[in-house]
């Protein structure tokens, strides 16, 4: 694919990639770096892209691999162990959910392990199918469904208005279904 093709790729996908990167990393600077590195890597691997229709999934996969490579090199950050979180929807939930503060969402995402964060981002943000997510992460589709259910339950527990009220002036993370924080990056 010529450079014209690459420019088309950038135009078509750079916003989605940046947003994905932002939700993965939590900062604008890291997201921009990751997006740049993704296209930089894509240049040298353009020959691998045999199906242009799959370009988006291909770029997302490159981005995720780069992100994983980075976080492996960094000190593991604290994440919430999802074993402590149930996966059933809360019955006390309000039927009319008010808007969620994107900053609070990001804070909750940052506390999730990548193996749960990636599917939830792809699920909501880019509306990837279960199958697409499974392909992205090299996981069985059942595992993806399970992780999504648990991550959703965790986000509900963190983002429900009741918790916001309860957590007013307190640490939201501790108020959100009281998940314990651990030092290990793997839940």
């Amino acid at each position: 694919m010529a450079s014209g093709g690459l420019h088309q790729l950038i135009d078509a996908h750079y916003e989605a990639l940046y947003r994905y990167a932002f939700r993965l990393t939590g900062t604008s600077a890291d997201a921009e770096d990751l997006t740049q590195e993704t296209f930089g890597k894509a240049i040298s691997r353009l020959a691998q892209l045999r199906e242009p229709d799959r370009a988006k999934a291909w770029l997302f996969r490159i981005l995720r691999n780069l992100y994983l490579h980075k976080v492996r090199d960094q000190k593991r950050h604290k994440v919430v162990p999802l074993d402590a979180v149930g996966d059933l929807p809360g019955r006390e939930a309000d039927e009319t959910m008010p808007e969620i503060d994107p900053a609070r969402l990001q804070q909750a995402l940052n506390d999730l392990d990548e193996s749960f964060r990636t599917p939830i981002i792809l699920f909501y943000f880019e509306e990837f199918s279960y199958r697409d997510i499974a392909e992205q992460m090299d996981l069985p589709i059942g595992t993806v469904m399970s992780r999504l259910a648990r991550a959703k339950a965790y986000l509900r527990s963190r983002l429900l208005p009741a918790n916001e009220a309860e957590g007013n002036g307190t640490n939201n993370e501790s108020a959100a279904a009281a998940p314990k924080r651990v030092t290990d990056g793997v839940p």
Binding site: E95, T96, E99, P102
Partner: peptide
């Protein structure tokens, strides 16, 4: 409630 949460989460997720 789940639908409402999904819509709110989807909207917040895209607010970048």
């Amino acid at each position: 409630a789940a639908s409402s949460f999904d819509r709110a989460l989807c909207s917040a997720m895209k607010a970048v």
